[in-house]
């Protein structure tokens, strides 16, 4: 049974696209058949982060308008044969994205894939509401920072009211993915801790992605971090999150700071 997952946040720049690429690649690495869809019409970037920007011929809106078949628009990843990308349109009018059209594309994808991961644009406008519309589950990407947490709360409200599942009286399964987590700064009280974020948003935690140079390096190179530096701390955290999304029980480890001499002396604990 195919699962439709939206990766959303409200706020921009928190790591939705990076997380979509990393989680999609991790699931594909586990042998799942995965399609990632970019819903950011006019500002597509998932193609770039996945290194497929020069292979885009047709896009989501071409498929909706009947200009191209789904099979023509899907781009197969060069590294993982069961990972596919459906890019967003870069030029066309946002209104071309229709609820009915998106519904049809997702229905067709469901017959071919195990996972359909929808990379939402920032904001709460049409693109974002359509990206979540048909979701069975949601990954809410949050940075431990006030504006991101506030926007995540707003998005959680929308997931509970504006999705097809919510309107039918069912629930969209929600998962919190905390990204750009800096254990040292949280331990020093400079950054909201995982406990703070969980208490405020009261949503189950899917994973904690530590801040790491490998994430930026991976997008520079156009490769999901889970493929580019699979042994790095952020990649391992994404692999764990992907396993949890599949329903496996992987114990959650809150990243700890590399303790300095003074901190060790004072017995300080991370988070």
């Amino acid at each position: 049974m195919a699962q439709v997952v939206v990766v959303t946040s409200g706020k921009g720049g928190v790591g939705k696209t990076t997380s979509t690429a990393a989680m999609g690649a991790a699931l594909a690495h586990f042998g799942e058949k995965v399609a990632v869809i970019d819903f950011d019409v006019g500002l597509r970037n998932l193609d770039l982060v996945m290194g497929a920007e020069r292979r885009v011929v047709f896009d989501l809106i071409n498929v909706i308008n009947g200009v191209a078949k789904l099979s023509q628009a899907l781009i197969r990843d060069k590294r993982l044969e069961n990972l596919f990308l459906l890019p967003a349109s870069q030029t066309r009018d946002k209104d071309a994205l229709t609820e009915e059209g998106v519904g049809k594309v997702i229905e067709e994808l469901k017959t071919k894939f195990d996972w359909i991961i929808c990379d939402s644009p920032a904001g709460i406008e049409r693109g974002a509401t359509l990206a979540m519309r048909y979701a069975d589950a949601a990954i809410i990407v949050t940075n431990p920072e006030v504006s991101s947490v506030r926007d995540s709360d707003r998005i959680i409200g929308l997931l509970d009211s504006k999705t097809l599942k919510a309107e039918r009286g069912e629930r969209v399964e929600k998962h919190l993915l905390v990204t750009r987590y800096h254990a040292g700064r949280a331990a020093r009280g400079e950054m909201l801790s995982i406990d703070d974020v969980l208490e405020i948003l009261s949503t189950p935690l899917l994973g904690i992605i530590p801040e790491g140079e490998e994430v930026l390096r991976a997008s520079n190179l156009g490769s999901p971090v889970t493929l580019n530096s699979p042994l790095s701390a952020p990649a391992r955290a994404y692999f764990d999150a992907a396993s949890r999304l599949k329903g496996e029980h992987i114990p959650m480890v809150i990243p700890t700071a590399n303790q300095g001499f003074l901190n060790k002396l004072f017995g300080r604990k991370a988070a």
């Binding site: 006030v146 506030r150 009280g189 400079e190 950054m191 909201l192 801790s193 703070d196």
Partner: peptide, 13 residues
């Protein structure tokens, strides 16, 4: 330590 601003953030949120 003057860096302990997280509790303020948490309360405001």
């Amino acid at each position: 330590r003057s860096g302990s601003s997280a509790p303020v953030a948490r309360e405001r949120l």
